[in-house]
Design a protein around this nucleic acid. Structure first.
Lengths: 244, 244
DNA sequence: CGCTAGCTTGAGAGAGTTCAAGAATCGTGG
DNA sequence: CCACGATTCTTGAACTCTCTCAAGCTAGCG
């Protein structure tokens, strides 16, 4: 297993942090420009390559990560069992680590999917801001709420045993899109298995079927791989409109 | 379908709110006694009978409910489908509605299981407190974080298709205990089905099997019904140590 | 008393697992 | 640059758990 920051490159507080300045749903919404500038110097601009471990489950919580590019999978292990499950996938411009901040320790393994770039903010800075600016804290709390909602929907849509694997796979792929494009983040069969809770063999069969039906085209080689999807068709499969 | 407050009884701000005064994990932790007293008059002491709907999905969020006795099931409907799923069960002394406060609308159907008593607090009061006392808001955010954690664990433990239904049922029952007792909140087979995502028939077979093995004894009649469980044995089943 | 909703029980069918073997791909080091 | 082992992915066949369908039972309620 890789440990955090193995290859992670970081450079200190640049003037511009795209995820933070003036965007909608921005992390620092509720703070004035001067207030933001004051903490800007403490923010690291970091990047992780595909497969790198960003946070290690159980480690002390020290930073927050605002995702700018790529995706991050959050892995949780069931009580004492070996079977790992991916419980959430974080995409831009969401934040990883709010739960860790509150719990004191990291709550999942967090692993990079694709090239991940983001802003890393020390927790002391964040919690201080929380105490100084209730609006800022409120904003953070909303982040948490949307994570909860996302997880609940994940649970309802993806883990229902009686819904055919093909249908659940379609729903899953639609959630793993890169923004609104027709490209889908590359996850390994093992990852997909950990999300849908089926065997790798079943995942392979379903993906193969989708490919042969033209719903999915594989582009790029392996770790750089993207699926290109026929979104409309996937949506029909997800709704159960396309039988076998 | 029942609507909120159909039979709900409420009486206004008594001097004592057991869930609020001086308990650990208390809702008002972080506030002084005087500050708590100031809002006390705005708190309703409410109770709901088994099966009553407490919150209605999609309705405007107006109050928070701190549970003192009984349990509350949170039901979510998948996209346009008829199949309902229970995504969380809230037990004393947790809070229902923090997510609704942040989202603006109620996020699930909330239905009483057993006799539910609790303190109902108007949201304007809560959000005002959040803005005034960052510590209080922080406390609320921790509530949300623990809901998230609970939901993720729920997902991992209970919804894995490849784990036999018997095993998942045992895990589920262990989560539905009344505190640390060996009594288990009474949920209908339909409810259990909505949590494990299996058919009612399968639920019935598993419960019957547990009963005949002496892991479960039914006491009380119907809507007052409790299961009494052999916790240690259930834990062994949950861990997969007892085959068939 | 009969009606309805909830629960039980049985037999057959199907989706996904398990087991097993083989193909493709990647990284590494000679 | 190629050979090597290690992953990752693919494919097949038998098995098994759960679903489906169908019928009967029980309990509560008007």
């Amino acid at each position: 297993m890789q440990f955090m920051n193995t290859h992670c490159t970081a450079w200190h507080g640049e003037g511009k942090c795209l995820a933070c300045d003036g965007k909608e749903n921005a992390f620092f919404a509720g703070l004035t420009h001067e207030e933001v500038s004051a903490v800007h110097v403490q923010i690291d601009n970091v990047s992780y390559s595909h497969g790198e471990t960003i946070y290690l489950h159980g480690a002390p919580a020290e930073t927050l990560l605002v995702i700018r590019t790529g995706a991050v999978k959050l892995v949780r292990y069931p009580n004492g069992d070996a079977m790992q499950r991916i419980v959430r996938v974080v995409k831009p411009v969401d934040v990883v680590g709010v739960d860790a901040m509150l719990a004191g320790t990291i709550q999942h393994h967090a692993v990079a999917v694709g090239e991940v770039r983001g802003c890393r903010i020390p927790l002391p800075v964040v919690s201080k801001l929380c105490m100084q600016y209730p609006d800022f804290q409120w904003n953070l709390m909303r982040q948490l709420q949307s994570s909860l909602k996302e997880t609940e929907q994940w649970l309802v849509d993806l883990t229902c045993g009686s819904v055919p694997a093909r249908e659940r796979m379609a729903r899953l792929l639609l959630r793993l899109r890169d923004g609104d494009s027709n490209r889908i983040y590359h996850f390994s069969l093992k990852d997909l298995r950990a999300m849908l809770c089926v065997t790798v063999e079943t995942v392979s069969r379903v993906i193969t079927e989708f490919s042969s039906l033209g719903l999915l085209v594989r582009t790029g080689k392996h770790s750089e791989q993207f699926f290109t999807a026929d979104i409309a068709a996937l949506e029909r499969v997800a709704a159960g409109e396309i039988p076998a």
